[in-house]
């Protein structure tokens, strides 16, 4: 029986290995091997990051979205993390890709009517800066922003900026995670940060660990949290490893490689007879 019930979570479905167009099996050794994300620039759009936390490990540039009379701007930030969520995501990313280069941009707005604009401003900045990876553990339900966000995620896709975006925890429509130009992430509960499921039923692309996750928290301690927003940085960390090994990859290639190394593939009936079982990714789901 499933022990968790928020929306956009894994039902334990499998995908036939024939869904992966690859003349040779793609394994994790080829995808990232011993890569640690070295040199890969990752932007975290969230509540800020406490870079002094040992699990984050420092070396984090910090910016914030600010509301001025002329509109929203991006400013250097020294406030750190004002809610805790961004530090949690940063710690998860660094647990998988300890040598990636982190940049934090804080988007929490005091004026709730404008928080969708703050998110858009931050994402536009991240795309303009050309970060190859952007962790977006939040979304907006504001329909008037849908078209601008759609255009922006398309621009990111064409520019080689991969937006890794959390699916909403409730069964509602929100953006940008529903757009096919981003990598969208929901949760599974397998206690393994590298365990990845490819979803045969989009719009969620992948499931990663998002239930009862121990995370870094501002001030040096840790908390146990659950939600799709904590599954997302697991995928970002794995992508950072891939990009160290294959820096030319963009969103389409990253989606393909992640699907190819996902843990929920099963061989077709034909392949099961006489197939080289050691070549295929592990398809079993730990109980």
């Amino acid at each position: 029986m499933r022990a968790f019930r928020f929306a956009h979570t894994s039902l334990g479905a499998t995908i036939p290995v024939t869904l992966i167009p690859a003349p040779e099996p793609i394994g994790r050794d080829w995808a990232w091997g011993d890569a640690t994300g070295r040199g890969v620039r990752v932007c975290i759009v969230d509540s800020g990051v406490d870079a002094t936390h040992p699990l984050v490990g420092g070396h984090t540039a910090a910016y914030a979205v600010a509301e001025a009379e002329t509109g929203w701007t991006i400013e250097p930030d020294e406030a750190g993390d004002v809610a805790g969520h961004g530090t949690a995501c940063a710690g998860i990313i660094r647990s998988l890709a300890p040598d990636c280069e982190l940049t934090s941009i804080r988007v929490l707005a005091r004026n709730l009517r404008g928080n969708g604009d703050a998110l858009l401003t931050a994402l536009e900045w991240a795309v303009d800066q050309g970060f190859p990876l952007v962790n977006v553990s939040l979304s907006t339900r504001r329909e008037p922003l849908k078209e601008r966000l759609h255009d922006l995620t398309d621009r990111a896709f064409f520019r080689g900026v991969t937006l890794v975006s959390a699916a909403h925890n409730s069964p509602v429509v929100s953006y940008p995670w529903r757009f096919p130009s981003v990598v969208s992430v929901g949760s599974h509960e397998v206690e393994d940060g590298e365990y990845l499921e490819s979803n045969p039923s989009p719009p969620v692309d992948f499931f990663a660990l998002g239930v009862n996750v121990r995370v870094a928290w501002p001030g040096g301690g840790s908390k146990i949290v659950s939600g799709n927003s904590f599954a997302t940085p697991h995928v970002v960390g794995l992508c950072a490893r891939v990009l160290e090994r294959h820096p030319e990859f963009r969103t389409a290639q990253l989606k393909h490689v992640l699907a190819a190394v996902s843990n929920n593939q099963v061989p077709t009936t034909d392949q099961a007879v006489g197939a080289d079982a050691t070549a295929a990714p592990t398809g079993s789901r730990p109980c």
């Binding site: 805790g84 929490l108 979304s139 909403h168 929100s174 908390k223």
Partner: peptide, 28 residues
Amino acid sequence: IPADRGIAGWVANTGEPIVIRGVSDDAR
């Protein structure tokens, strides 16, 4: 309290529910 601070600020800004365990060791 400011709408852009703390756990309540995060939930208000994102519209996402959240459960956090281990808050008692958060001195601030």
